[in-house]
Design a protein around this nucleic acid. Structure first.
Length: 431
RNA sequence: UCCGGAGUGGCUCAAUGGUAGAGCGGGUGGCUGUUAACCACUAGGUUGUAGGUUCGAAUCCUAUCUCCGGAGCCA
């Protein structure tokens, strides 16, 4: 018998005496019986304290233990069908590490500002706990997916010398006697890396200094970005679809308990199987016009448009073949019609927005040079990027998946600030 | 940056021009199967800030700060 066990394993010790180490989540007192809801970061377990089963000192802890006090509980694991886990602990002894001061977060409703100010404590609550577990599962599932398909992890730098896409606002920082910017994407570096390693992915934080105040935006977020040599836009979409399907499967398989805690309707996730609908921008525009939106050809879609399109499907929908003006300079033009680029966005169901943006990349140096010129980007900054097209250029493609948006979709979270441990937004830099 | 909304005990809210209340949390007591347990008692607020109108302002006006929701941009 180990010195102590993690709470998630108590079913394996049914009928035996074990010790748990963790924190008091809640206490419900009665006269000669009291209930201690225990948590240790692996599960929440009810512990029952009966007057005639423990010493008087332990029984009297009902009036000295406070919410979030740290303890070691020794007791017998017994079946309890009314518990979510099916088990509870009949307490024999409690040892106290620390009696917590009055805890700010009650087991009642709080406002989001208060909770985010106390994020360092809020993480202990059931909801954030479950979301963090799902997020971690998605990260691991992503790595497993690409590692199993001959991708090499090649992480990209956070400091960059220039504005990669020119359009979005970057955080500027001092870099000794120069300026540097925080990366908004690892893609350009991945394009170089695949010429060395064929298929790569990077997985790290990205930074956008845009003054976005919506439930879908953070200034610091995580993105997993695969990049593949010899892939065209269709191969790219095939992979994106297989990837997202695998993520849903992993979360459904490994995060049942977390989804239960979050009261997520898993039926909506169970239907997420290949193939996903693929429509072109023009087809999406028809849907919008049919639904009464006034969008001109060539305009990008806003959040209400995305939601309206996603409502037509019960799976993620891929919208591809976009008007060139709406997309970044590096996307490949459609050879059949120069007005379009071979880019794709994947929109998650239930209003969770765009979770993937990808494209086939422009491999022709002359076309790329023209676009750099048209968009008034600095050619000097992109010389290394152009080298990729000078030495054995090949068709290639890739995409980026936003981790927080995907986590939000899996968990049914309204706002993605709950899907990252320490959210950074326009108005929040603490804790 | 623009549009809309809100700031009242530790927290969540009520009080719409006339003596600032409730629930939760805290404290005290009660209860042997509770499920954000329950019951009783109790402490706790110069109503975001600065001006103004009024006999009288949480309430009306002006300014300002902060946050929330949405837009643009995007993952």
């Amino acid at each position: 018998m180990p010195k102590y066990i993690l709470a998630k394993y108590i079913p394996e010790y049914s009928g035996r005496e074990i010790t748990l180490k963790g924190w008091v989540y809640n206490i419900r007192k009665s006269g000669k019986i009291w209930f201690l809801i225990f948590r240790d970061g692996t599960e929440f377990v009810q512990c029952v304290v009966l007057k005639n089963e423990v010493s008087e000192a332990v029984f009297e802890m009902k009036s000295t233990l406070t919410q979030e006090s740290s303890i070691a509980v020794t007791g017998v694991v017994q079946e309890a069908p009314r518990q979510e886990t099916g088990y509870e602990i009949l307490v024999k002894n409690i040892e106290v590490y620390h009696v917590a001061e009055e805890y700010p977060i009650a087991l009642k409703e709080h406002g989001i500002e208060f909770l985010m100010d106390h994020r360092h404590l809020w993480l202990r609550s059931r909801g954030p706990y479950a979301v963090m577990k799902v997020r971690a599962e998605l990260e691991q599932a992503s790595r497993d997916f690409f590692n199993a398909r001959d991708f090499t992890l090649v992480d990209s730098p956070m400091f960059t010398p220039n504005a990669a896409e020119g359009s979005t606002t970057l955080f500027e920082t001092k870099y000794f006697d120069r300026k540097a910017y925080l990366t908004q994407s690892g893609q350009l570096y991945s394009e170089a890396a695949i010429m060395a390693l064929n298929r790569t992915y990077c997985f790290g934080p990205c930074f956008r200094a845009e003054k976005s105040k919506t439930r879908r935006h953070l200034t610091e977020f995580w993105m997993v970005e695969p990049e593949m040599a010899f892939f065209d836009i269709h191969d790219d979409m095939d992979l994106a679809e297989e990837f997202v399907e695998s993520l849903v499967k992993r979360v459904l398989g490994n995060c049942k308990r977390e989804l239960q805690m979050l009261e997520r309707d898993t039926a909506k996730l169970e239907g997420i199987t290949r193939p996903f609908p693929r429509i072109t921008y023009d087809e999406a525009l028809e849907i919008l016009h049919r639904k009464g939106f006034e969008v001109e050809w060539g305009e990008d879609f806003g959040a209400p448009h995305e939601t309206a399109i996603s409502e037509e499907f019960d799976k993620p929908v891929m919208i591809w073949r976009w008007p060139a003006a709406t997309k970044a300079f590096y996307m490949k033009r459609d050879p059949e019609d120069e007005r379009y680029v071979l880019g794709v966005d994947m929109i998650a169901p239930e209003g969770h927005g765009e979770i993937i943006g990808g494209s086939q990349r422009e491999e022709d140096i002359d076309v790329l040079l023209r676009r750099i010129e048209t968009e008034a980007l600095s050619r000097e900054d992109f010389e290394w990027f152009l080298d990729i097209r000078r030495y054995g250029s090949v068709p290639h493609a890739g995409f980026g998946l936003g981790l927080e948006r995907t986590t939000g979709w899996m968990c049914g979270t309204r706002h993605i600030r709950e899907c990252i441990p320490w959210p950074r937004t326009m108005v929040r830099l603490k804790p």
